[in-house]
Amino acid sequence: MIGIDGGGLPPGADDALAAAEVVLGGARHLRSVPVPPSASRVELGPVEPALERLAGRRGVVLASGDPGFFGIVRLLRERGYEPVVLPARSSVQLLFARLGRSWDDVAVVSAHGRALGPAVNVCRARPAVAVLTAPGAGPAEIGAALDGWPRTLVVAEDLGGPDERLTTLPAAEAAARDWHPLTVVLCLRDPDAVPGRGWHAGGEPVPPGRGWALPDDAFDHRAGMVTKAEVRALVLARLAPRPGTLVWDVGAGSGSVAVECARLGAAALAVERRADDAARIAANAAAHGVDVRVVEGEAPAALAGLPHPDAVFVGGGGPEVVAAATGADRVVVALAALDRIAPTRAALHAAGLAVDGVQLAASRFADLPDGSVRLAATNPITILWGTRP
């Protein structure tokens, strides 16, 4: 394997090419290296037929940058090859060198040959993300998908090539432009921020060190309008928030569920009809150092046009809200009113979800004047969840 970055071949590449019986690579890579006349030149299109040309022959595979970083090395090893890798500089390494910025805090995701949605959700959730792109999953598509999230993009076109260019612009403006087919995108919450000294590549790991299902007083709330910690613990388990997913918190109140999902690495969107609670959600998110997009409005009308969720928590609203949210693969509903259980269960079934549920009745320790404790009951809550088979 030989990596190519526009700055010359890595050490040992000339000898490997001279001894090759077959050289595989994209058309632009084959044009850029000295392929010996005796070697077969195989232009990569469909991968499997090209790899068959390597069988029993000394071969060289050409690839961009470091082929061990989201590259073809994995595919070769899956097919039983044990490649010798001569890497060049990866496109991500080149990008940050051009910017003069450290990048140990940056999450790196790929939309090349993969779905764009998970990569965009990481951009929605994390302060600094580098995206390896592909046709149909490039700067324009990323910029459009970030509508509603304040982000700045640095678009690096043709890194190391003759058309190299770096452009910094708001995400919304990237959606309206045409771009070079070879791009890497850096998505930033604050383009002027100097990242703190960390210890874990890609930013702080998840789950967070303080755990989850935080105490109720970890969130500012209105007169006890917060999903209680015991309920939140089960809700989080059923929502399964994680990097690459988007979770809606509908009827969010204090936004405790949305904030906890964001702390677990998911992109989070909170829908709340009250302006004072919407402000509390934003303040709670900031206090915990996470991003939560707040949409002020009443569900189900406020849900129209929002990006498609992977999971939805409904903490406020009737079966009509549940019905509007059932495009997700996971829907979790917390109910205090018994008369809403049957119609909510019916709405989940009608959406084709497999439905289950439980009632939680927790009693918490409460101090007595003599220093002993008693048990103080909290209101029973019924939790229903639906999952797509």
Rank of each mutant, 00 (worst) to 15 (best):
G80H: 15
L75V: 11
V33P: 09
E78C: 09
L169V: 10
L182Q: 13
D66C: 04
W248L: 09
I2M: 09
G100I: 10
A240D: 08
V120L: 01
E272N: 13
P118L: 03
I72H: 01
E52C: 01
G143S: 12
G305T: 12
V259T: 02
R189G: 10
L44D: 06
A270L: 04
V331L: 06
V73A: 12
P243D: 06
V23G: 07
E260M: 00
G6P: 02
A137W: 00
P195H: 10
R364W: 11
L17R: 14
D291E: 14
G315R: 00
A301Q: 15
G265V: 01
A145S: 14
A55L: 14
A278N: 15
R57T: 02
A223K: 15
D163V: 03
E173S: 12
T227C: 08
V92G: 00
L75T: 15
V231R: 08
W199T: 01
R374M: 05
G305L: 09
A240V: 11
A323C: 06
S64C: 03
A266P: 07
E204V: 02
G289V: 00
G56H: 11
A278V: 12
I383R: 15
V322C: 13
R345C: 11
P241D: 12
V194A: 13
R114V: 06
H349R: 12
A252I: 00
L153V: 05
L269G: 04
A233E: 02
E260S: 04
P191S: 13
P170R: 10
A299K: 05
R280G: 03
L153G: 04
P205M: 01
A27H: 09
P170T: 14
A268K: 10
A115G: 06
P36L: 03
D104K: 04
A366W: 04
A286Y: 08
A229I: 09
Q359F: 05
A175C: 10
L94H: 11
V42G: 08
V108C: 04
L17S: 13
F313D: 13
S38G: 14
V106R: 06
A267V: 10
L236M: 08
V312K: 00
D220P: 02
S91Y: 06
A275V: 05
G8C: 04
T387K: 08
A172K: 03
L132P: 15
L264P: 15
A252H: 02
A258I: 08
R293D: 01
